[in-house]
Computed example of a mutant assay.
Amino acid sequence: MSRSRPSLGTLLKHVHRSGPMSRAALARHMGVNRSTIMALTRELAAAGLLEHQPAAARSGAGRPSLLVRPRPERAHVLAFDIGTDRPVAARVGLGGQLLDRREADTPTHPSSRDMRDVLAELSQQIQQSATPGSACVGAGAALGAEPTTIGADLQRLLGRPVAVGRRAQLAAVAERERGAGAGFRDVVYLQGGDRVDGGIVVDGANLGRHDGQTPAIGHMLVDPQHGRPCSCGSLGCLDTKLGRDALLAAAGRDPEVGHRDAVLAMVRDAAAGDETAAEALAIAGDWLGIAIANLITLVRPQVVILDGTLRYLYAGAAEQVHARIAHHSTPDTRRQTDLRPGILGQNAALLGAAELGFAAFLDDPLHITAASA
């Protein structure tokens, strides 16, 4: 049986990431025959990880084929999103199904001790709500860009390893696997907020590691001669043009007032005829287009996903964005790339953290399920 476990993991990964699949489709994807697929699905079904369901009714002779689907309630991971004002914890089941989600109100800048107390309470709540017989097979956490000990604190709280990664990169993973980038191999994800961050997927693999050694998209130079100083020590980085405070200052607005939704309000005011907001939005659209043109030239992605405040900016300044892309990239590269908003919303980083938690389990599902039961 041990020799078949890599194939068990491969099959479970397909179903976990793609949802219900026919045995014929699994055989094609894995390059094995139907009898092998039947044996593997039977073994995973016996462990409670998969089940068969009838496909939609079809006309013609013969029985309708069966679909293989994951059982989310049988195996789950604990996922945490800690890089926001309100820490979030969740149980995410096999197949990426969000089984339980809890959000806590915290001070804007909580102490480490306050954060540990919040995480302890959230962890207890989501674990108590688990279905009897459901195995916790891993844990993952999405952290902000700043160094923190929260990952280590979580490991002590849970008594198990916790895989950690940067929020934007994990959101990129989730959007590529379950969101706006599903089905594509080359994806760029851009997220706006206090700073600009993101993730890059090339040929289905993340560019960079989850431990912080990732592309610093916010520090891409776009205006080195005339730009303002950046926190990194350079001049004219993308952060200085499209970070939240920079956007609001350009529109003559106080960044401290209505901070969370202030960029969205600026975009709405521009559409309603506010000339100052409209001018600031158009200029921001220029800088976003220049940045995307650079990434298109470098990576040649099939999709660029815009999220956070950049989603609002693109909605209000799409004309400027596309004009800059057309001006600064070659026709063959820009024709390959589609721009679209993210669709997972506030759960993007959380679902990406869950994928970190599932990684070891999907490599050896029967061993880890048995150990966690």
Rank of each mutant, 00 (worst) to 15 (best):
S59I: 09
G60A: 04
G60D: 02
A61F: 14
G62D: 04
G62A: 04
L66Q: 14
L67R: 14
L67E: 09
L67V: 02
R69P: 07
R69L: 14
R69E: 07
P70N: 00
P70Y: 03
P70I: 12
R71C: 10
R71G: 03
R74C: 03
R74M: 05
A79G: 00
A79P: 05
F80L: 13
D81N: 07
I82Q: 00
G83M: 04
G83C: 05
T84P: 00
T84V: 08
D85S: 14
D85F: 01
R86F: 02
P87S: 09
V88P: 02
V88M: 00
R91W: 04
V92M: 09
V92Y: 03
V92A: 05
V92P: 06
G93M: 07
L94R: 11
L94Y: 11
L94A: 09
L94T: 05
G95S: 10
G95M: 09
G96R: 07
G96T: 08
G96N: 14
L98A: 12
L99V: 11
D100Y: 13
D100E: 15
R101A: 04
R101E: 12
R101K: 15
R102A: 11
E103A: 02
A104K: 07
D105Q: 12
T106S: 14
P107C: 08
P107G: 13
P107D: 09
T108V: 14
H109A: 11
P110R: 04
S111R: 15
S111Q: 13
S111V: 10
S111L: 08
S112P: 15
R113K: 15
D114P: 03
D114V: 13
R116Q: 12
R116T: 15
R116F: 06
A120L: 13
A120V: 12
E121V: 15
L122S: 06
L122T: 08
S123L: 10
S123Q: 08
Q124F: 07
Q125M: 10
Q125W: 02
I126G: 04
Q127T: 09
A130Y: 08
A130V: 11
P132T: 15
P132D: 15
P132N: 09
G133H: 01
A135W: 03
A139I: 10
G140Q: 01
G140L: 00
A142W: 06
A142F: 01
G144T: 04
G144Q: 05
A145E: 08
A145Q: 10
P147S: 06
P147G: 01
T148K: 00
I150W: 09
I150F: 01
A152R: 15
A152N: 12
A152C: 05
A152M: 13
